[in-house]
Nucleic acid binder design. Structure first.
Lengths: 141, 141
DNA sequence: ACTTGACTTGGAGTACACTCCAAGTTGTAA
DNA sequence: TTACAACTTGGAGTGTACTCCAAGTCAAGT
């Protein structure tokens, strides 16, 4: 989706960011997003970079960053380039966190595959399915 | 951690499952866990398989399965082997969901790495950091 | 007999992230 | 000018998943 230089309605912003109108207003209300400029009638306007920074926030959110953490990051951004090292370390830490999360997901994936295999065996050979089956690890739950 | 055949306190159950006492009681209260047997004094006792099934639940939870979905799965389990095909399809669907989640995490990982690289450049060569820098995509937020 | 500690219960409270609503304003179109 | 749609606001309500608390019970140790 091409982002225009100026976005002149909250509706358009929702289409570009994937957030709802309510969520955008909520983020502004709690200070996660800066107070947006308004047109003469009070409607919000956004420049392209603002939309891009909202999209970046949605990425962070989608990887489990909390609103408070995102707020902290954004506040540092607004303080200029002196805070780049700090922002860098926040991103590095988050990167590590995601890496661990990925590893955890792979591990559980393996466990689920094991269980799926067991269920497939049962459906193909119902004799294995009696409740006294020795494979308690597979049969649990 | 070796799971004993019989677990005679909720404390021990927390150590084996990683859940808190409150969470275990809460899960039982809402019917995610079956009503546990009690000792004469009312204290909960668990058999090994029960602990194992709690641990399996924590895996599902850790990969984003909601309590309602876990409840549904557990109810099917309690209905016996006729529900194995249904349970199979639930696990397969969840497996797919996790696969997508992993892909999404990798994608965001890439975006974060891109930003980290940019910040590293800035810290090593501060001349690039002036606010009029052309690389708006990198500089946003 | 009394204290201590580990548990029990029902129910209330909390944290997070929205989501919805009522009442009001503005710009355009009939 | 009147209707309508698209926004605005402050504030209340919702869903999920816990988390905490007060009051009580029980077994074991001193």
């Amino acid at each position: 989706m091409e982002i225009p230089e100026v976005v002149t309605s909250i509706k358009q912003a929702t289409e570009l960011t994937g957030l709802t109108e309510d969520t955008i207003r909520y983020y502004e209300k709690i200070g996660l997003l800066p107070y947006a400029d308004r047109k003469r009638n009070g409607h919000r306007v956004y420049r392209r970079e603002q939309i891009q920074s909202i999209i970046f926030l949605t990425r962070l959110k989608a990887t489990g960053m909390t609103i408070e953490e995102m707020k902290r990051y954004r506040e540092l951004s607004s303080l200029g380039n002196d805070t780049v090292p700090l922002r860098l370390s926040i991103l590095e830490e988050h990167h590590q966190k995601i890496q661990k999360e990925i590893a955890r997901l792979f591990e559980v994936q393996r466990i689920i595959e094991y269980k799926i295999d067991h269920y497939r065996e049962i459906t193909q050979n119902p004799d294995l399915s009696d409740t006294n089956c020795a494979s308690t690890i597979k049969n649990d739950l």
